[in-house]
Each structure stands twice: as C-alpha cells, then as structure tokens.
Design a protein around this nucleic acid. Structure first.
Length: 434
RNA sequence: GGAGAGGUCGCAUAGUGGCCUAGUGCGCUCGCUUGGAAAGCGGGUAUGUCGAAAGGCAUCGAGGGUUCGAAUCCCUCCCUCUCCGCCA
C-alpha cells in the first residue's frame, strides 16, 4: 500500500507506475474518494461529539424524555453518517490495495521480461567433450529423481528425491546456514563493497507453512488465488514461500530503531499450483508443486532498505559463485516485476543441459509497501519514519540449485561431482550409481 | 477434539451500564531537594485520524448488536493459560 499523502502529491508518478506495471487502477477516482472519505469522517465525528456531550448531560441521573428523544435522533444521524463513510471507505480501500508499489528510478521500463536488463554475467560456463544432459535425465539414470511414482501417488509435478541427491540437499542447507549466520562473512561482504550497514547475521527460522487469508492479503501475496493451495476446513493457505510467513512475523508491531535491521533466513517447503504454466517445463523438477527453499527476510530502517537489497544480492552471488556455478544478475523490468516490488533483481544460473540461464534467485525490495499493510512500524527518536522497509529474497531454492549442480558438474559417465564447498558435509565426492 | 479461566495504557493490576475524560503501582522522563546520589515531593509519560491551529473523534483482543449512554450486557471470531483426550 502507498501513502495517501504521497499519492496526492505525486499523482502522475503513481499513474505512471500503474501504466508501467500493466495495471489499470483509477487514480483520479481514488482521489475523489479520498476527499469524500475525509468529509464523511468529519461529519461522523461531529455527530459523535454531540452524542458524547449528551451522554455527559445525562450522567448520574435518570435521563428525561427530552434527552432520550435527542439521543435517538443523533443515533439515527450517526448511523447514516457511518453508512456513507463505510461505503466510501470500502471503495477507497479497494483502490488503495490495487495500487502497485512505485518502481525505483533505476528499474528498466518495459512491457514484459524482454525489457529485463542483464547487469553482469559471472563465471565461466563449463566445457564438455560430450553432449551435456538435462537434470531429469541424469536424475533418472542415477535413480535420485523419481517423477513417475510421485505422479502415481500424488500427481504430476510432484517428485520423490532420493539417495545422494537428498544428502546433497541437506548439505546445501548446512552450507547456506553457515554463510548466513556467520557475522564475519556478512561483515566481509559489506566492507568489500563499502556499505555502511550493520553486520547483523541472519537468524534461522523454521516458519509455519500455512497462513491465514487476511495475512496473505496484507503481504499482497494472496492474488492470484488460483496459484495458492487452500485448505477450506481451516480457512488456511499453504505458503508459496517462507517469505509468506516470515514477512508477517512482526505484523502490528512497533520495533525499536536500535533493534534494526532484523535479518531472518527461513527454511520451508513451498507450495505452488503453477496455474497458467501448462506445458511449461514439464520434464524434471524445475517447476513442481512442492519444493524446499531457504528465504531471506530483512526489516530495516527506510534509509537502509536499498543497501539491504544490495547486500542480499551480494550474498546470493557469494553462494552461487562459491558453488562454482556461472550466473547472470538481472534487473527486472517494470512489466515483469511483482506488484509490491519497488525493485526486483533476479539471478539466473547457467544450466548446460538446457543451454540456458534459468531463474534460481529473486530479490524483492518492497520499501514500505508491505509494512504499511502489515502495520510494522519503527519508533525513532525524532518521531518520523514510521514504517520499516522490507526486503525478501531467495537464499537458495534447493530444487533448482540441485538442478544447476547436476547439470554443471556432470561427467561423461552420467555421474555428478560434488562442489568443493559441500564436500565437508558429505561422505562422498561424487553422485554415481554406486 | 472436550471442559474451564482469561485478554484493560511499556509491564503489573483496579474497574458488573452514566462518578471512566480508564484509577493505582512499577518502569521511563523532567524538575525540586543534594557537595553528589538514593529516598522523598511535584509534573510528564499510548496509538491512529481530521484540522493551519485550538481542538475534535476513534481505539480496553477483533468484528457485529442492545441502549439516550458500553471496558462493563448479548452474538461471532482470534489468541493465551489450566485440565482431559489424541499424537511426532
């Protein structure tokens, strides 16, 4: 949600953001409703004041008939004033919720993903003296990915991960936790880039994977609903990311400025219905309904919000790079970015089997768009500031990183070498048929 | 899942229809006092919203209702605690 004062003062900018994000929201109508809403609010307050006065008059005594009559009249007036206000406010709120966040100035403007800009490409693509295979082929041959039985038991786009691949998933979790919880690593990245933000390490969290609808609405992650799994008996949604329950962890709280930034790394299973992706990535585990992921979530002072995103991206790069995977960093354009994003940066990792870079990480700078909906505030000395800035980002999407490792580290015989940084967590250096 | 008890200002508590414009204690803070401190005494100490301001309005877990008038009565929901059941 945007600040109504900001909308009044920067109407053109808000309209431009809607256009650039391909969203149709009637901003002029919103401003009309804003005026109405305040007018009706004032009228209602006036009636309430009169009612309070009358109640004070009646205090202590048995009220006489005149006061009762007067009170009844005021009650009627209050009711109709309230109805008018509610009606205006409802439409106002709907429009407020429909408005997207304003993209930062350095976000490329464009209709869709074709306008995304690659900022940098890092790492050398591996050279093979054989035709590299895709991950599903490798996985099936090594008997570490079983899609057929998963389809039989649960359905398409579900998977059994098995054996050494599972051990590697847990090695990845261990490795990523070791990076994110180490103050020295965070400090080194910050100093190398000359940023002036805290070296606070990330606190590991295993969050709930179910969430209330109204909380998802506050996160602006409920829509499109078709993308979410829903449990009617309990009126709960399954999260599509740990972000969905990490972000609202501090909802309706006022945080101390000296307690910021708060940095979390959540580990959870994520559930996505993949509505609208029929026919896309049908083979393998690139796009499945259930996958495990580690997610960063950072609450910070407003002035540090952008630097926090820079830090997050640097951490993502550190992880991908240390795993020996070639990648590119991409600035996502207005047409492709999320509605609540002010700035979105993706990391696409090289998949030799597909001969393509594919999205493995995303980083969402939300400014105060989510915190305003979630009512997460910060108390400051000078009284200003109000809402915290929020960032969320992939720490590691386990399935997709496994794919990247399988395809980049494959050998001619179909075995897969274990990246160096993971070796200390595993009792083997190669995934093979054993 | 069943039974019961609760949710009030940063914390603790009082408050069973008008004296609540929510009291008291603690904490915090300013001042008096002091060589300095403690104690003591006095003042201040929530958030949102409308307004240029004065000030108004709203908020006692949330939402509805009854009433001239609700922290207080009724309904629905959320959460916490205790006991029982079930369970990794």
């Amino acid at each position: 949600m945007l600040d109504i004062e900001y909308i009044r003062e920067n109407t053109e900018k808000v309209k431009e953001a809607c256009r650039n994000k391909n969203l149709a929201v009637d901003v002029d109508r919103l401003l009309v409703l804003d005026k109405q809403r305040r007018k009706f609010r004032f009228a209602l307050d006036e009636v309430a004041r009169k009612r309070n006065e009358l109640a004070r008059q009646a205090k202590g005594d048995k009220p006489d008939q005149q006061i009762i009559e007067e009170g009844k009249k005021l009650k009627e007036k209050a009711k109709s004033a309230e109805d008018k206000l509610k009606e205006a406010e409802q439409e106002y709120n709907n429009l407020m919720l429909a408005l997207p966040n304003i993209p930062t100035d350095d976000t490329p403007v464009g209709k869709d993903e074709s306008a995304n800009e690659v900022i940098r490409s890092v790492g050398d693509k591996p050279q093979f003296d054989f035709e590299p295979k895709e991950h599903w082929e490798l996985g099936q041959d090594l008997d570490v990915i079983d899609l057929e039985r998963a389809a039989k038991v649960t359905g398409a786009r579900f998977v059994y991960l098995k054996g050494q691949l599972v051990l590697m998933q847990f090695a990845l979790i261990q490795y990523v936790l070791s990076v994110l919880t180490d103050r020295a690593v965070i400090k080194e990245i910050i100093e190398k880039n000359g940023w002036s933000i805290a070296d606070t390490p990330f606190i590991p969290v295993v969050p709930p994977v179910m969430v209330r609808p109204e909380v998802m609405q506050s996160m602006d992650r409920l829509e499109p609903k078709e993308e979410r799994y829903y449990i009617p008996g309990d009126d709960l949604y399954l999260v599509g990311s740990a972000e969905h329950t990490l972000g609202p962890m501090h909802m309706e709280e006022t945080l101390r400025a000296d307690g910021l930034p708060i940095r979390y790394v959540g580990y959870s299973t994520s559930f996505r219905r993949e509505a609208g992706s029929y026919g896309k990535d049908l083979k393998g585990i690139l796009r499945v309904h259930q996958f495990d992921k580690m997610e960063m979530e950072v609450l910070s002072l407003p002035e540090n919000g952008l630097a926090e995103q820079e830090l997050i991206v640097a951490i993502q790069e550190h992880i991908v790079h240390s795993l020996g995977l070639p990648y590119q960093v991409m600035m996502v354009s207005t047409g492709d970015m999320g509605k609540p994003d002010a700035r979105q940066i993706d990391i696409n990792t090289w998949l030799p089997g597909q001969d393509k870079y594919r999205e493995t990480h995303t980083s969402d700078f939300m400014s105060d768009y989510q915190s305003r909906r979630l009512k997460i505030k910060v108390k400051r000395e000078n009284g200003s500031g109000n809402y915290v800035y929020m960032n969320d980002a992939t720490a590691i999407a386990l399935g997709r990183m496994l794919i990247a490792i399988m395809e980049n580290y494959q050998e001619a015989d179909g075995s897969i070498k274990v990246p160096k940084v993971l070796q200390k967590y595993l009792p083997f250096k190669v995934i093979d048929k054993g």
